[in-house]
Design a binder for these strands. Sequence first.
DNA 1: ATAAAACTATGTTTTAAAACACAAAAGTAT
DNA 2: ATACTTTTGTGTTTTAAAACATAGTTTTAT
Lengths: 233, 233
Amino acid sequence: MARISKKEKYLSTSLSDIWNMLSDVEQKQLLDNARIIHFKTSEMIYFEDDNPEDLMCLLEGKVKIFKSGIGGRSQIIRMIRPVQYFGYRAYFAREQYVTSASAFEACTVCMIPIKIIEDLFRGNGALALHFIHLLSSDLGVADQRVVSLTQKHVRGRLAESLISLKESYGLEEDGATINIYLTREDLANLSNMTTSNAIRTLSTFVNERIVAIDGRKIKIIDEDRLRNISRIG
Amino acid sequence: MARISKKEKYLSTSLSDIWNMLSDVEQKQLLDNARIIHFKTSEMIYFEDDNPEDLMCLLEGKVKIFKSGIGGRSQIIRMIRPVQYFGYRAYFAREQYVTSASAFEACTVCMIPIKIIEDLFRGNGALALHFIHLLSSDLGVADQRVVSLTQKHVRGRLAESLISLKESYGLEEDGATINIYLTREDLANLSNMTTSNAIRTLSTFVNERIVAIDGRKIKIIDEDRLRNISRIG
DNA sequence: ATAAAACTATGTTTTAAAACACAAAAGTAT
DNA sequence: ATACTTTTGTGTTTTAAAACATAGTTTTAT
């Protein structure tokens, strides 16, 4: 009986969602080809226009997927949390990356050559179905986002971003502070507004006792009201 | 040897992209469960909040997928042309529909119970991969759209919509008129603007000899300029 | 064929958000 | 510690697009 390596133990736990769908042979194939890579805060993971070559899975840390738009103005498309897959869409669309990805904080990423994954899909419909599920969910979020970002006012968009950050990364031990450390500029790029507007609107939320801020840490005081602001736009 | 039915002939041609990926047994399963349904102009095909039950494939006509947003303001999310699949995303995301679909003109739609398709995926990775490709492409378009619709000005958004309509539905025999008949309101809902702004901006395009209009028919006079307006936003 | 409804067109007013400007504070590097 | 850069905060001005108003035209339904 083969000795179970440290890597195998680590990956089989980290990637348990797909690991359990694989046969022994498939597991070995994954294991032999997977690399574990670390990124420092604000380090780039991939660039717009690069060729996609790996399926990535965020094991630790936080990643932002963003696009640079008109006049270099950046729009955060989605935030990745552990354990989520990313970086594979472009390959399956037969495109180059249309987004960039960077580490929001120190990250551990598992990278698997995307061709390996494609081959696994071909022989393993259940595995493919899992990614159909992931893509379908992302597409639903994207469709919803088009409406939110175009139709809601700044207050509604900022409120929605704060709630979505809370849902993604959770709260700290105090049960109120959103567990992410980001600049007002990032908050603006997530919410489709200028940095000044993010700063100003966040300030009014503070005055209205909806949130409290301590530097970049944001504490949600009145989530119901925040949700309502997000809902009515 | 079994007689080849009219339906089989029709579907094997219409759905040739996936038909050729299927075994005899799978083809029969598809055939036995597929229904051909007709819709009249502006008839609803499915509604937001409905349960998704079928994979749909548009065989003839034009379909719009739209969301009703803040204050009932409608946003067209994408336009479907023959032969494209739609209506399956929500099922694979395990959600209800977050969009509605309606016939833009008289349509023929092939409907296949989505559970049948899911089963086919499980046993046929190549088929699943085909839909991974479709979803990946749609997600890329959605990501791009978030930036276009939020960052471009009305002129840029309208120009982009006109070009995308041309790419989707092509031109009439004159080699200039976009092959779709839609109201200014639909054009506005596609481009994230008010109806007045769509009317006004289209008028200025006419004055600038970029397009010509004859009622709802739009003729592209200067595509280069239109593309440039779309590009610079 | 006619009336009703929906759509197109254009002018005017209002408004939300961007752009700009500057100062203070907080990080970062040397 | 010091200078330098980035980020935050607020006030002011400008502007693009929405909102509103009204009339003419086309489409649709009876």
